[in-house]
């Protein structure tokens, strides 16, 4: 079993979804190397899974393993916060250049919490 298991809930096969999937993959690859598993769930295709897992918002990234379970809602436009929330290895958060390349050009830090 991988050290990290994550689930990503997206809405439909849209460019937006493609973008967030790519973003999470890149982020994970950078942080965990190959030692992770990412399950992508399209809530339009699999509403039953969303129901079972009680997901409301898309996109939602769930860290299933290691415990405790963590939910990150939103398009992850603020990389440091993602790293922090998922308690990823800190090597990434020091590497700011890498982080910004993951985000898109119209990135706007989300500051409402």
């Amino acid at each position: 079993m991988s050290a990290y298991i994550l689930s990503l809930y997206v809405a439909g096969a849209t460019p937006k979804s493609e973008l967030i999937i790519a973003r999470v993959r890149a982020l994970c690859a950078q942080a965990f190397g190959s030692d992770f598993q990412l399950n992508v769930i399209d809530v339009i295709q699999q509403p039953d899974v969303a129901e079972e897992q009680r997901i409301l918002a898309t996109p939602t990234l769930v860290r299933e393993h290691p415990a405790p379970r963590r939910y990150i809602i939103g398009d992850l436009s603020h990389v440091e916060k993602v790293v922090q929330a998922l308690e990823m290895p800190t090597s990434l958060s020091s590497n700011n250049n890498q982080g910004s390349t993951l985000t898109t050009e119209e990135e706007q830090p989300y500051d409402g919490e």
């Binding site: 379970r69 939910y71 939103g74 398009d75 989300y110 409402g112 919490e113």
Partner: peptide, 9 residues
């Protein structure tokens, strides 16, 4: 469970 909001949704 803990959850945070990062970006738009």
């Amino acid at each position: 469970d803990e959850s945070v909001v990062i970006g738009s949704y």
